[in-house]
């Protein structure tokens, strides 16, 4: 707990931005307490409604700017699901769109200074990844029955290698939710912590702090990219996993 004391007098608390606080009062955090998590998730929902519902309320044949953006998101994810998960995967399009919009908007809203990044919390990303994992597993068994297990039995490999490969495949299958969640949470946490560390340098360096401030600006640009790319990666990996469940196994 005394780590900061060893940090050479720099007052850097890169992890403070991730603290979950109750919105009202100071009480203990029960499962129903409205916290900053609630606030920023609510803002994400409102942003989603503004982006996809309000902007398209005129249903114009010639789209306005907002409607073009909404159509862009729709077309992007629709094409991704169709290309990666196959035509069967389109049944899960609303589900994947939900994940994408939530992750993308949370990442982007988290980049507003002083905001709270819900997707930087392992609890959130783990639930998202477990939802995907459970969906894929249940849908796979529902659609293919026991044949879903043939995914682990690599029929193109030599017979001797197959049991070993099956074990590896099985392990990699169960590691999926772990890597899926930690990739997203870790990326965002790392980026925000790095910005905060540089901000701490800026406070301690006097005139020379233009250097860390410039670095923060550069990292902020990188973080914008990371926020978008991680949402994209999370979604496309969901599609890839979903293909195992709904698509052709030997595709």
């Amino acid at each position: 707990m005394a780590t900061e004391e060893h940090a050479g007098g720099l007052q850097i608390h890169p992890m403070d931005q991730f603290v979950v606080k109750p919105l009202f009062g100071d009480g203990p955090i029960e499962w129903y307490t409205p916290t900053n998590v609630t606030l920023w998730m609510g803002i994400a929902v409102l942003a989603m409604i503004a982006l996809l519902v309000l902007s398209t309320r005129r249903r114009a044949i010639v789209p306005s700017r907002g409607q073009s953006v909404a159509e862009l998101f729709y077309g992007f994810i629709h094409k991704m699901v169709e290309d990666v998960a196959g035509h069967e995967g389109l049944k899960f399009f609303p589900y994947i769109m939900t994940l994408f919009m939530f992750v993308f908007l949370s990442n982007m809203l988290g980049l507003i200074p002083m905001s709270f990044t819900t997707t930087s919390h392992i609890a959130v990303t783990a639930v998202l990844a477990l939802l995907v994992f459970l969906t894929v597993t249940l849908v796979g068994f529902y659609r293919k029955g026991i044949g879903f297990l043939s995914m682990f039995w690599v029929s193109s490999a030599p017979l001797i290698l197959r049991p070993i490969l099956a074990v590896i495949e099985l392990i990699s299958y169960f590691v999926r939710p772990l890597s899926h969640s930690i990739r997203l949470g870790g990326n965002l946490m790392a980026g925000h912590a790095v910005i905060k560390v540089f901000a701490g340098f800026a406070g301690a360096m006097g005139v020379a702090s233009v250097v860390p401030i410039a670095a923060i600006a550069a990292i902020y640009g990188l973080e914008l990219l990371v926020a978008a790319v991680q949402a994209y990666v999370f979604t496309i990996l969901t599609c890839v996993y979903l293909r195992d469940a709904v698509g052709d196994a030997h595709h």
Partner: peptide
């Protein structure tokens, strides 16, 4: 804080 986050999520 996990139950809280998971619930709101």
């Amino acid at each position: 804080t996990w139950p809280n986050q998971i619930f709101w999520l």
